[in-house]
């Protein structure tokens, strides 16, 4: 079993294609929230998309729809031309890597760094009764950890639970990209870190995405990161993209443009 989807004949060559997706929370109750109505989005292979937007704009729901943690009401989601709506979250995880906001979610705190990496490397293969950690792979794991420049290669037998948030998040990033994946999902993955650690983790993210030529969707509240990294920027509001800028257009934007748009939206909704 491979960890990547076989490429089917795509209609338009996009890696992600979200077509006419609608999502309503608490339908039929006073708390009804219509978030997406016939939402469409195409992401070509190799694009690094940053998504910004206020709370409740649908950023995280977009990621949850992609990963399968939340089912869509209607519409279709294609990855590499394959409809994935019928796949459960854990089945989609075989070709989608995800790093969460909470650093403790991307690793198993009780297991050692070595054991975590051994599990991650086995993703997509059966988890049977052979020994979990292959000691001969230790050098490979060390070389991978060296790429993080956090000195983790010397703490390989330490339980992950004893690492700091930044170290754990860097490890989670490494772990989620260890096997070849089609799509990397970054869910506000620097939000819970201190400024220094979040810079480090963001730099690492960018390096990994470039080196492994990954397609990535990153949700962030950090406008600076959204401007500086990635080659496409989306601003979401009430389940719609109010800004969609790619390549040169994105390169010409700065944080003020984003802030102005935010203010404009706030005025519209009467805040």
């Amino acid at each position: 079993m491979s960890t990547q989807l076989k490429s089917e004949s795509c209609q338009n060559g996009s890696l992600i294609s979200i077509q006419n997706v609608s999502k309503t929370f608490n339908p039929g109750s006073v708390n009804e929230v219509v978030l997406f109505q016939n939402f469409n989005l195409d992401v070509p292979k190799g694009q690094f998309v940053s998504v910004v937007g206020s709370n409740g704009s649908g950023k995280t729901t977009l990621l949850n729809l992609l990963c399968g943690s939340v089912p869509a009401d209607s519409g279709a989601i294609f990855i590499k031309g394959q409809e994935i709506s019928a796949l459960k979250e854990f089945q989609r995880a075989r070709f989608i890597g995800r790093v969460f906001q909470d650093p403790s979610k991307g690793t198993c705190p009780e297991l050692s760094i070595l054991e975590n990496m051994a599990l991650a490397e086995n993703k997509g293969k059966p988890f049977g009764l052979s020994m979990g950690v292959n000691r001969r792979r230790t050098d490979f794991y060390r070389s991978q950890l060296e790429m993080l420049h956090l000195g983790l290669e010397d703490k390989i037998n330490l339980p992950v639970g004893s690492l700091s948030g930044g170290q754990r998040q860097a490890l989670a990033l490494l772990i989620s990209t260890m096997t070849p994946i089609d799509l990397l999902i970054l869910d506000e993955h620097t939000a819970a870190l201190d400024p220094k650690s979040s810079e480090t983790v963001m730099e690492l993210t960018d390096t990994f995405i470039r080196e492994k030529q990954l397609t990535a969707v990153m949700v962030t509240h950090n406008l600076k990161f959204a401007i500086r990294y990635g080659n496409r920027l989306l601003m979401m509001h009430r389940g719609e993209c109010v800004i969609d800028a790619a390549d040169e257009q994105k390169a010409s934007m700065d944080t003020d443009d984003l802030l102005n748009k935010f203010n404009e939206i706030s005025l519209e909704v009467g805040n």
Binding site: A93, G97, F100, K105, T107, E110, L119, F127, V133, S176
Partner: peptide, 17 residues
């Protein structure tokens, strides 16, 4: 190892497919 992760952090098991 997967069993130990399942008790500790079920989301990690999901991430491993």
């Amino acid at each position: 190892l997967l069993l130990r992760s399942a008790g500790d952090n079920p989301q990690y098991v999901v991430s491993l497919g």
